[in-house]
């Protein structure tokens, strides 16, 4: 466990250094850059790209979480049960749509820029959260639900005090999947002119500058891995809390 903490801290430090002081790594990327070409990406500050990237992902993920969980609550109530099969069909079919295709298809409808990226991230992000939230709400232990009813909790109280807390770990798993996909799709978003870290990689690909490609790839990869890891830890904490 300790070793993992040291490793994590080192990766965070490496990521921060790559973002804030990219100039420190000139020696490492130099062999990959074209002769006399630029080594470190300087067309925009990596920090502002990172913030814009993460901002886009957080905005889309928060919105997707709110909408998906609300919808999942609705379709798992008796009144919304008629929509449950259709919801499952939509999530199953929707998730076979490649995220890149969703992004590309958003452009004809919405034009270039941050807008279509945000919409694509939001739409695609809904599905895993919705799917997991439905699973979470429909697989609650029946004995617990029966007890909650027996104790005289109202529907609303059952939802807030029992169902949501118990379904939370499963919902969080959905959010994690969604965030990881969003981080990746946002990277591709720079092909439709959204301001994200993908810009660095694309610039590298267009100018045959492998140093840019690796630089962008490393930063995005580290962000994804660390955020994923943080969310896994959060879930583990919650699960431990309930099973203790």
């Amino acid at each position: 466990m300790k070793l993992a903490m040291i490793f994590r801290t080192a990766l965070v430090a490496l990521l921060l250094a790559l973002v804030i002081k990219p100039i420190w790594f000139t020696w490492a990327f130099a062999p990959l850059a074209p002769e006399k070409g630029p080594i470190i990406y300087e067309r925009a500050s990596l920090l502002s790209l990172s913030l814009s990237h993460l901002g886009l992902v957080s905005l889309a993920s928060v919105a997707a979480t709110l909408v998906a969980v609300t919808l999942a609550i609705l379709v798992t109530r008796p009144a919304g049960a008629a929509f449950l099969p259709l919801s499952r069909t939509i999530t199953n079919m929707g998730q076979t749509f490649p995220p890149v295709a969703v992004l590309a298809l958003a452009v004809p409808a919405l034009g270039f820029g941050t807008g279509p990226t945000l919409v694509a991230l939001f739409l695609y992000g809904l599905l895993p959260i919705f799917e997991n939230a439905i699973t979470g709400f429909s697989t609650l232990p029946p004995a617990t639900m029966e007890a909650a009813r027996g104790l005289g909790l109202s529907r609303w109280q059952r939802l807030i005090r029992v169902e949501i807390p118990l379904a939370l770990p499963v919902i969080l798993t959905g959010i994690r999947l969604s965030v990881v996909i969003a981080l990746g799709t946002a990277t591709i978003g720079s092909t439709v002119a959204a301001r994200t870290l993908g810009e660095v990689i694309i610039a590298g690909l267009l100018t045959h500058n492998t140093a840019y490609v690796l630089q962008g790839g490393l930063i995005v990869g580290l962000f994804a891995v660390l955020i994923y890891d943080a969310l896994v830890q959060l879930e583990a904490m919650l699960v431990n809390k309930y099973s203790a």
Binding site: G184, T210, V213, G217
Partner: peptide, 21 residues
């Protein structure tokens, strides 16, 4: 393997370039 899966696709494709080069 699950960390590999986490790496955004564009980054993964990008990282392969210097590696295979």
């Amino acid at each position: 393997l699950s960390f590999l899966q986490t790496i955004p696709s564009l980054a993964m494709f990008g990282i392969m370039i210097p590696l295979l080069g």
